[in-house]
Design a protein around this nucleic acid. Structure first.
Length: 346
RNA sequence: GGACAGGUGGCCGAGUGGCUAAAGGCAGCAGGCUGUAAACCUGCCGCUCCUUGUGAGCUACGGGGGUUCAAAUCCUCCCCUGUCCA
């Protein structure tokens, strides 16, 4: 997959950097981990520091000094996660800022404007991430809203995507827009959603509305049932997944892109993923464990630091704990994808 | 030597007669985290037993003695700590 800021090998895992930062990991170390593409978030960056400011700073890439590809989420997930702070209408969503309570209105058009201003390589259509559980009627209605917004997103994006005059280096390299499949856990609705989106002809397709609390067998089933209705010659992206074994499984099923806050968030909370399974590094049993976190891992953390030290940093609440833990978890995730790409069983 | 103030569970700290095995915080222990309102959240946290429960017993609020049906809470003596005065 070739994007304005470079080529991306798939299947790929994309670390989440909501507020122009993959929490606890500086960009130069992300490069060392060989992260190929990261996520940014439209809603969060719009609120702070503001997309106009980022545009004046030369765009998100230059602002955060990350010259590799960036995918921006549309704010659709915040329609779901900030459910107590928002009101959805057919026209768009009214949010109350989680920062200061102020009111803001997001429409598909506005989301596109913000994403274009940020200069992302891949913009996501503004969608409504349907909650779980949702009955059929609710899922259908939500899906309808998302399809309507997808159409409006595309129309607006196509009309304005060449407006990135702020950086001449990328002149002629137009950003991509992905549509997002919804439909709750109803496979026929998923099919309908996928087919309608394909008719609109996006540069890629995402399966959204998963990992919202449903059992993981359902997640897998919905992915398996939806994938066949999405073109194989375009990127297929499952949003918001998953555990290491899940991303390997989905990649094997034909998913090209995935993102998840799990490796970064869990790392900050002391949950580390290793070839031997989960390690809760806060546990007393690692207090005097001089061995590496994961004997089979070759990441910079496992090569150098002991479990005892990582455990100490965690219990002492040293900021370095978050840094080292996140470095390892991301290395583990990226390595998992590397193995899948190399054809080694995930 | 005198005058005040005070001694509560590992620590800090509420509690001034029964609703108190004793609020809350910290520390400790265990668990959760899936397009980030998350360096966050939840549970446990005196001991023992069992039919694991708005369960039983034991021990506990500096120490001894006392008042009371009932005391961390009231009285008394002692010990210790802090501040101030000699």
């Amino acid at each position: 997959m070739v994007l304005p800021h470079g080529a991306v090998e798939t299947p790929v895992f994309m670390p989440v950097g909501t507020a122009a930062s993959v929490k606890a990991v500086p960009q130069h170390l992300l490069e060392e981990l060989d992260a190929q593409i990261i996520l940014g978030n439209t809603y969060h960056l719009y609120l702070r520091p503001g997309h106009a400011l980022i545009e004046r700073m030369g765009g998100l890439h230059r602002f955060m000094s990350w010259e590799r590809p960036i995918l921006t989420d549309s704010g659709g997930f915040q329609v779901f996660s900030l459910n107590k702070l928002r009101k959805v209408t057919e026209d768009g969503v009214e949010f109350r800022s989680h920062l200061d309570g102020s009111k803001h209105f997001f429409s598909p058009e506005h989301s596109m404007d913000v994403q274009i201003a940020l200069g992302s390589d891949i913009a996501m259509a503004f969608d409504e991430c349907t909650e779980y559980p949702a009955d059929r009627e609710r899922a259908r209605k939500s899906l309808g809203t998302t399809l309507l917004w997808a159409e409006r997103s595309k129309r607006h994006f196509d009309a304005h995507k060449h407006a990135r005059v702020w950086d001449e280096r990328f002149a002629g390299q137009t950003p991509n827009l992905f549509g997002i499949v919804q439909g709750g856990m109803y496979t026929d609705l998923r099919r309908e959603s996928a087919e309608r989106l394909v008719e609109m002809d996006f540069e890629g397709y995402a399966i959204g509305g998963l990992s919202v609390g449903e059992p993981r067998e359902l997640t897998r089933e919905v992915i398996a049932e939806t994938l066949p209705y999405l073109p194989t010659d375009k990127p297929r992206y499952v949003m918001g997944v998953g555990y290491p074994d899940e991303i390997a499984e989905y990649a094997a099923m034909g998913v090209d892109m995935m993102d998840c806050v799990l490796p970064t968030r869990a790392a900050r909370h002391g949950l580390l993923f290793t070839s031997e399974g989960r390690v809760n590094i806060k546990s007393k049993k690692y207090a005097e464990d001089q061995g590496p976190l994961d004997p089979k891992c070759e990441c910079m953390v496992c090569r150098r630091y002991s479990r005892a030290y990582l455990r100490h940093l965690m219990t002492a609440q040293e900021p370095l704990a978050a840094v080292l833990n996140t470095l390892h978890n991301l290395a583990f995730y990226l390595d998992t994808m590397r193995r899948v790409r190399a054809g080694i069983a995930g």
